[in-house]
Simulated scan of single mutants.
Amino acid sequence: MKTLLITSALALTASLAAAGTTVESCNREVTFEAPPQRAISNDVNLTEMMLVLGLADKMVGYTGISGWKTLDADMRAGVEELPELSAKYPTKEVLLGADADFFFAGWNYGMKVGGEVTPETLAPFGIKVYELTESCTHIMAKDKASIEDMYNDLLNLGRIFAVEDKANDLVAGYRADLARFADGLETGEPLRVFVYDSGEDTPFTAGRYAMPTALIEAAGGTNIMDDFEKSWATVTWEEVVERNPEVVVIVNYGEVTAEQKRDFMMSNPAFADLDAVKNDRFVTLEYVEATPGPRNIEAVKTLANAFWGE
């Protein structure tokens, strides 16, 4: 009898331990005793990760979209039952007012280092935070951006919300799709590529820790700012001219359109000798394609087709 009781106790302990799911989030480990039921995501790309995993019914809203960007038809359909709780970054009060138990955000994707909304400031209120992997470079040493960062987030979300099979299948499908495309892709010497996000006096661009670096490499190019030890940040036009990009990738969002950004570069005498300008080689990625999320695979295809032809 004593042996049976001990065995039962051990089995119960093991069962309770198994009930908790622990994932790595940047430099932290976060344990979830049960899947969140009142989740909030920030930004379009993070929200799409939630939607592609079928988690809308576990959400009470989203934040940080309409203040900068617009939703396409797919996104509008996905979140039509959910309120936008804040047009830009949410305050702590917004998250508490929604009675959230989970916040999917990132550093400079809804949270600022030293800001009022961080994993540490939300913990006392029972709101657990999972951080976008690409954004971890703002608080810890990290390898340069990789499509694996996006896969990692989908797989971790799958574990957090107990939809592991769906996440595994989704990532396996993305891997296979990209592998098939890469097998059929004929490239030459890697093209020199500049990512033009915004700014006229000084350009805001993607460095080695931002997702476009990985997308460009997968498409057969090289980000001319690959040695820029930043994620998204400002450089000088002099640096861009010196590195002479052969292609410019424009990130489309905000009040200044992609066409206006192209016109600015095409009409400015300072850029007249750039190979990209001389040959009018511009390609546009929507913000939701250029940042980590489900549309990264199609973004690689868009870039590769622009670099090397259909």
Rank of each mutant, 00 (worst) to 15 (best):
residue 254 G to K: 00
residue 67 G to S: 05
residue 62 Y to L: 10
residue 243 R to Y: 08
residue 120 E to Q: 10
residue 67 G to K: 02
residue 208 R to L: 15
residue 177 D to G: 01
residue 180 R to Y: 00
residue 110 G to D: 01
residue 198 S to C: 03
residue 260 Q to L: 12
residue 116 E to H: 01
residue 276 A to T: 13
residue 92 K to P: 00
residue 174 Y to V: 09
residue 189 E to H: 02
residue 253 Y to K: 03
residue 122 L to F: 02
residue 221 G to M: 10
residue 199 G to S: 08
residue 128 K to P: 04
residue 174 Y to P: 04
residue 230 K to F: 15
residue 229 E to L: 09
residue 19 A to F: 04
residue 158 G to R: 03
residue 69 K to G: 01
residue 98 A to W: 03
residue 130 Y to T: 11
residue 59 M to S: 06
residue 124 P to R: 11
residue 31 T to M: 05
residue 14 A to T: 13
residue 56 A to V: 12
residue 123 A to C: 02
residue 183 D to L: 12
residue 273 D to K: 15
residue 291 T to A: 11
residue 196 Y to M: 08
residue 49 M to A: 08
residue 81 E to V: 11
residue 72 D to Q: 05
residue 271 F to V: 12
residue 215 L to N: 03
residue 81 E to R: 13
residue 211 M to E: 09
residue 68 W to H: 05
residue 173 G to N: 07
residue 303 L to I: 14
residue 13 T to D: 01
residue 33 E to A: 11
residue 192 R to S: 15
residue 82 L to V: 15
residue 225 M to E: 07
residue 58 K to D: 14
residue 282 F to Y: 13
residue 27 N to Q: 12
residue 103 F to P: 08
residue 225 M to P: 00
residue 196 Y to L: 13
residue 66 S to P: 01
residue 148 E to G: 09
residue 218 A to L: 11
residue 59 M to R: 03
residue 159 R to K: 15
residue 231 S to V: 12
residue 141 A to W: 00
residue 78 G to Q: 05
residue 89 Y to P: 04
residue 271 F to T: 12
residue 137 T to G: 09
residue 210 A to Q: 06
residue 60 V to S: 03
residue 91 T to K: 00
residue 20 G to A: 14
residue 205 T to I: 11
residue 287 Y to E: 05
residue 299 A to N: 03
residue 24 E to Y: 01
residue 292 P to W: 04
residue 267 S to K: 14
residue 203 P to D: 06
residue 7 T to H: 02
residue 259 E to F: 08
residue 236 T to K: 07
residue 273 D to Y: 10
residue 9 A to G: 11
residue 123 A to G: 04
residue 266 M to C: 07
residue 14 A to E: 02
residue 55 L to R: 09
residue 189 E to V: 13
residue 235 V to P: 03
residue 87 A to V: 11
residue 155 L to W: 03
residue 126 G to Y: 03
residue 243 R to N: 10
residue 204 F to R: 02
residue 78 G to H: 07
residue 289 E to K: 01
residue 186 E to F: 06
residue 169 D to C: 08
residue 120 E to D: 12
residue 178 L to D: 08
residue 22 T to C: 12
residue 125 F to E: 05
residue 37 Q to S: 15
residue 137 T to R: 06
residue 295 R to S: 12
residue 96 L to E: 02
residue 46 L to W: 01
residue 104 F to T: 07
residue 301 K to I: 13
residue 209 Y to D: 08
residue 10 L to C: 15
residue 86 S to Q: 02
residue 295 R to E: 11
residue 298 E to V: 13
residue 82 L to Q: 09
residue 108 N to H: 04
residue 81 E to S: 15
residue 191 L to H: 07
residue 124 P to M: 12
residue 111 M to I: 06
residue 237 W to D: 07
residue 152 N to V: 10
residue 301 K to R: 14
residue 306 A to K: 04
residue 244 N to F: 02
residue 106 G to L: 02
residue 287 Y to N: 00
residue 87 A to M: 06
residue 143 D to S: 13
residue 293 G to N: 04
residue 115 G to I: 14
residue 227 D to W: 00
residue 284 T to I: 15
residue 310 E to W: 03
residue 286 E to L: 12
residue 168 N to G: 06
residue 31 T to N: 06
residue 262 R to W: 13
residue 235 V to S: 11
residue 276 A to Y: 04
